[in-house]
Write a protein that binds this DNA or RNA. Structure first.
Ligand code: MN
Ligand code: MN
Ligand code: MN
Ligand code: MN
Lengths: 219, 219
DNA sequence: CCTTATTATTAAGTATGCTTAAAAATAGAA
DNA sequence: TTCTATTTTTAAGCATACTTAATAATAAGG
């Protein structure tokens, strides 16, 4: 497996998990910063290897072995993020940036060492679950996506699912951090905009951010 | 810079430093496990980028910017080795194996973090000097190569410059570790074989190993 | 339902980093 | 010095991962 193939498969997995997203070639291409033609090309190659299901003009899906491969990369990514956060104190964006590279050059052997050193963490610093070696992932069933969390209630931030520096900068500047308390207010613009109150500040957030923020009722 | 280019340049640096070695295309090719044709090809490409001096049928040499590039990779390699040894307790061979991959995906930013975490170490666990960010390297002027260390004297092992698992297994099995004490005995086979006594055991070593082991008079 | 805009696919081409095979140059031995 | 063995180079070719441009299919709006 090459870096390109690993990133491609991981992107499919993440798009398929993400809210309001699809796994069509163009979407994958945009996420990876490559042309649509290159994405179609890669889709055919990975289908030939039995890692994805590809039917012309259809969204692609991962096969079981493709899913396991995605989870292997994601496990390494999130273990590195947890490690860089705990040990070196890097920021939310820095851990992601470095893990994006290290994930492809990490043996299963080394991943186990990191895992043991951190006492087998279940989530990374963004609140994302860390898949186990066998590919099992435990999703918190208490997480609510902020774009859909019932209004009028108070929540704790439980997951920041973005990856762009801009997103993390915004969260940091507005005290949106894992464990922070916020209240959901009115919805505007046909539910596209969510009003929240955090640290006595009122914010109006659009779905491009509220689809990346998860909250839960209790800490 | 690609992984292939970084490894190529690093190999030239190491061959040029090593005892009884040269930097001819065939030697580089053998070290990297590629064909002579591929090595010639790469030599021309790197020369075009001003990283090496290449004249047909001649050994290649690094330019100043090539040397700095080699030292940058070597710095990352050795910082990772020191880190994996200290923090995860990996063996001499395991640290090398993992560092060989990680060295290419490590930002200068991350290298600085590792360096600071380890309190700016000057040598890695093999006794090799860790180049500074500016490319300066401090070589111990007290190190003697075991193949040439005067007979009859007692020394401390100061550097194990190999990279093969077989070499490190041999060293471990025979108590040849950094700081271990040994005495140099007779030389045989026109100096190709060195007799040493370590932990009351007599060993006869050939130059393929004694060119990789360095010792010094005082600890 | 038809037209148009968007998206996907195919085709052709490029750079990288390899390969093997053949030719050329160099090095070593007699 | 001359022959031979070794090494290096050149040539041709291949796989990967991209590109742009042209074509085909699908999706969306009027
Ligand atoms: Mn991440
Ligand atoms: Mn990546
Ligand atoms: Mn090493
Ligand atoms: Mn390497």
């Amino acid at each position: 497996m090459s870096v390109s193939k690993e990133n491609f498969i991981k992107t499919i997995y993440k798009l398929q998990q993400g809210v309001g997203q699809n796994t069509r070639p163009g979407t994958i291409a945009a996420a990876l910063g490559i042309s649509n033609a290159a994405a179609t090309d890669m889709a055919r190659k990975l289908a030939a290897r039995g890692l994805i299901n590809y039917v012309k003009y259809q969204p692609v899906t991962l096969t079981e072995s493709g899913r396991l491969m995605a989870l292997d990369v994601l496990r390494k990514h999130r273990l590195w993020e947890a490690f860089l956060f705990e040990v070196f104190g890097l920021s939310m964006h820095e851990i992601h940036r470095e893990a994006e590279l290290l994930e492809h050059q990490t043996s299963v052997f080394l991943a186990e060492k990191i895992d043991a050193f951190l006492n087998n963490p279940t989530t990374d610093p963004h609140g994302d679950p860390i898949p186990a070696t066998d590919g099992s992932v435990v999703f918190s069933n208490k997480n609510l996506i902020l774009s859909e969390a019932p209004a009028g209630a108070t929540y704790y931030v439980s997951r920041l699912a973005g990856s762009e520096e801009e997103f993390f900068d915004f969260c940091r500047d507005n005290k949106i951090a894992i464990g922070a308390q916020l209240t959901v207010g009115n919805r505007y613009n046909a539910g596209q905009t969510t009003e929240i109150v955090i640290e006595d500040t009122k914010l109006l957030l659009n779905t491009d951010f509220t689809n990346l923020i998860y909250v839960k009722q209790n800490q």
